[in-house]
């Protein structure tokens, strides 16, 4: 019973954390853009403009909601809802810290340690495209339809290379559970990260993560210079807000997955010495803090790339996915298999 209450609390905390980080990502994206373009950025709402996300949220809710006359009403509403739900579902299998003891019982800082955690993430990811496709189709607008078609093509193409790079990681760690994967990276005083074993796999996974979250340089589904607004052309008010928000939550959680798979999750250098000298709860909090710091670095990296690299053309995108990343990921998998066989 206590365990269930703890897990429900964890779910609520994770929900609020995802929402808060996503909200402040919209703010920091504008600040980072301003920094890179030598501007000041939003600084009117509150001290340093820190209340800007709140003001944006109120604006989104207050705006008039327009439903296109010829749209499919039910599916039009279902689109952003699916996007938001699938974005939030990923956080269930991510290990946020080491086990802690509450009332004499060992508790995991993870909502559900299912033994196919990484496949669960792939499954949720592949469902994410439905939100965009259904929304884009139900708008009954040519630009929205084109955006939706681009989104689905792009996500299906990059899922393959992403899956192949994950296969290489599964071969090195020998487990499908994210909890085990992170625990397996605590060698060398907490520095046995997978990035040192799988540098090529990491690069492929990172590029695919950009494509799967529809971030620049792969934001073709909503490229405003050619498709007005892409799949969310017809959306207004909070429904548009949900689409934009889901993108930021996806960014947060894919940063978390990248950290778990390649950058040791909550492991940090000399953690075994720290663990021996500090209280258990304090140590767990430190681990969570380190994990969040790594995630925030990757969110910054997403923004950094957005304001540095221009958008791809669609044929370049497909060439990169099918002719470069997929063969490279297969080669990476073969090399990993050969090395494992040689070491046996």
């Amino acid at each position: 019973m206590e365990l269930i209450i703890f897990k429900i609390c964890l779910v609520l905390v994770l929900f609020l954390l995802s929402i808060t980080i996503a909200a402040y990502s919209t703010f920091s994206e504008r600040k980072v853009a301003a920094f890179m373009q030598d501007r000041i950025g939003p600084n009117r709402a509150g001290p340093f403009g820190l209340l800007q996300p709140l003001a944006d949220g109120i604006k989104m809710i207050m705006k008039e909601e327009i439903m296109p006359a010829d749209s499919n009403k039910l599916l039009f509403i279902l689109g952003p809802a699916i996007s938001m739900i699938t974005a939030l579902m990923t956080s269930a299998v991510i290990p946020w810290g080491p086990d802690i003891t509450i009332g004499g019982e060992k508790v995991q800082l993870q909502v559900a340690d299912i033994n196919v955690g990484i496949l669960y993430i792939m499954g949720v990811l592949s469902l994410g495209v439905y939100g965009i496709m259904i929304g884009g189709w139900a708008s009954n607008n040519k630009f929205a339809l084109l955006g939706a078609v681009r989104a689905s093509t792009q996500m299906i193409s990059y899922e393959l290379a992403m899956g192949m790079s994950i296969v290489a990681i599964i071969m090195t760690t020998g487990s499908l559970s994210l909890g085990n994967m992170v625990e397996g990276q605590n060698g060398w005083h907490g520095m046995g990260w997978n990035i040192f074993l799988q540098p090529l796999g990491f690069l492929i996974f990172l590029i695919c993560a950009f494509a799967e979250t529809n971030r620049t340089p792969f934001d073709l589904p909503e490229s405003e210079t050619e498709l007005v607004g892409g799949y969310h052309t017809e959306y207004s008010s909070m429904k548009l807000g949900f689409y934009l928000f889901a993108e930021y939550i996806n960014m947060f959680l894919s940063s978390a997955v990248i950290t778990c798979l390649y950058f040791g999750g909550y492991n940090f250098p000399f953690m075994d010495m720290v663990q021996a000298n500090t209280h258990e709860i304090l140590f767990a909090l430190m681990c969570v803090g380190v994990f969040l710091a790594k995630i925030i670095f990757f969110i910054f990296f997403f923004m950094w790339v957005r304001w540095t690299i221009p958008r791809f053309r669609f044929d370049q995108l497909m060439n990169l996915g099918w002719k470069v990343l997929l063969p490279l990921s297969i080669v990476n998998m073969l090399i990993t298999g050969a090395v494992i066989l040689y070491n046996q």
Partner: peptide, 14 residues
């Protein structure tokens, strides 16, 4: 879910 819902049905929908 990955194969049928995530891949094949997306192609149908496409």
């Amino acid at each position: 879910v990955i194969v049928y819902a995530g891949a094949i049905m997306v192609l149908f929908l496409y």
